[in-house]
């Protein structure tokens, strides 16, 4: 029961998902829609609550145990609670009862998102420009012929990306596009075809119960 029921459920909904695309009839279509748009969405909301509970408890623990950097756990908890109150009771755009405006200063959750999360996310993301430079410097060494291929094609494509490449020779952007269209396409296609086989195999392993690590320990 404890193993079988989840496995049976998994097989049933697995086939439901599998056949969704093959059965255009409204009856299965509606069932699938219900599954995606209502059932699984509601369940995922509960998973989030569980996850947030886990995060809060972990940081409260860190404060209690005075682990390294514990004062920063306060930053996390306070910012979480304050912003949650603003978001939950102030509404998405400040339309609910909790005040999210002082004079001309707006701080509803959408504003907070735009003015705090966006700069944070964009800065984090843009670190990549720097990491790419250091990764290229560190790893693009012509150690063996495979490395030379990697380095060479990266070099040509980088040059083809910018107007200077075009100035050096109009052929460079052409070559770079050829690399993207021929060897790159071939490699990607080969990898993608393999991935599909992996997906199929994973589907079978999970549905046939060969792979059951997800069942965890409660047995």
């Amino acid at each position: 029961m404890k193993d079988k029921l989840p496995l049976i459920l998994l097989i049933v909904v697995g086939f439901m998902g599998l056949t969704d695309r093959f059965l255009p009839h409204p009856a299965p279509e509606h069932l699938n829609q219900y599954m995606r748009d209502t059932l699984l969405r509601i369940i995922s909301a509960f998973a989030l609550i569980l996850g947030l509970g886990n995060l809060i408890l972990r940081h409260m623990n860190r404060i209690r145990k005075k682990s390294t950097d514990w004062p920063h756990s306060y930053t996390l908890l306070i910012s979480f609670f304050v912003a949650s109150v603003i978001g939950l009771f102030g509404g998405v755009a400040g339309e609910l009862w909790f005040p999210t405006r002082v004079g001309t200063f707006d701080f509803n959750i959408t504003t907070i998102y735009n003015q705090m999360l966006i700069p944070l996310g964009a800065s984090m993301f843009s670190l990549l420009a720097f990491y790419m430079a250091s990764a290229a410097y560190r790893s693009f060494r012509a150690r063996n012929w495979l490395a030379i291929l990697l380095l060479g094609s990266a070099f040509i494509v980088m040059l083809g990306q910018v107007p200077i490449g075009y100035r050096i020779s109009p052929a460079i952007p052409e070559i770079s596009q050829w690399i993207m269209e021929v060897p790159n396409t071939a490699a990607k296609r080969g990898i993608e075809l393999g991935i599909t086989l992996g997906v199929l195999a994973t589907f079978l392993k999970i549905l046939s119960g060969i792979e059951r690590s997800w069942l965890g320990s409660g047995r």
């Binding site: 995922s44 998973a47 996850g51 886990n54 997800w214 069942l215 965890g216 320990s217």
Partner: peptide
């Protein structure tokens, strides 16, 4: 560390199960 709460629920079961196994 997990980014998706649903994945979090699965990975927790997986790790606990692995230690038991």
């Amino acid at each position: 560390p997990n980014r998706d709460p649903v994945v979090f629920t699965v990975s927790r079961e997986v790790v606990k199960g692995a230690y038991t196994a």
